[in-house]
């Protein structure tokens, strides 16, 4: 069994309205030194394949559904569990 961990975040320069909202809220809660928050989505995908195939399948999943390359960057980690 493999765990594919995919973290999808906004590319540098792409506006992140959720991050901005959270920054504002944290400032209101007294954390005045919080300057920026980036929000990312983490997917943990459990697949029953050999470790040698993990990355290939992960990349396919990312490309087919999880990422829009116009606005997103991603990290993919393959973990044996």
């Amino acid at each position: 069994m493999l765990k594919l961990v995919v973290v999808v975040k906004f590319k540098e320069g792409i506006d992140d309205p959720e991050g901005k909202s959270i920054t504002h809220s944290l400032n209101l809660l007294g954390f005045e030194n919080v300057k920026k928050v980036n929000v990312a989505k983490q997917y943990e995908i459990f697949v029953d394949v050999d470790v040698s195939k993990g990355r290939e399948i992960g990349e396919k999943i990312v490309k087919k559904l999880l990422v829009n390359p116009v606005i997103h960057d991603y990290e993919l980690r393959v973990e044996e569990i």
């Binding site: 792409i14 506006d15 309205p17 959720e18 901005k20 909202s21 829009n68 116009v70 606005i71």
Partner: peptide
Amino acid sequence: ALATNESN
């Protein structure tokens, strides 16, 4: 992309 509204 049609991204999240600026207003969130």
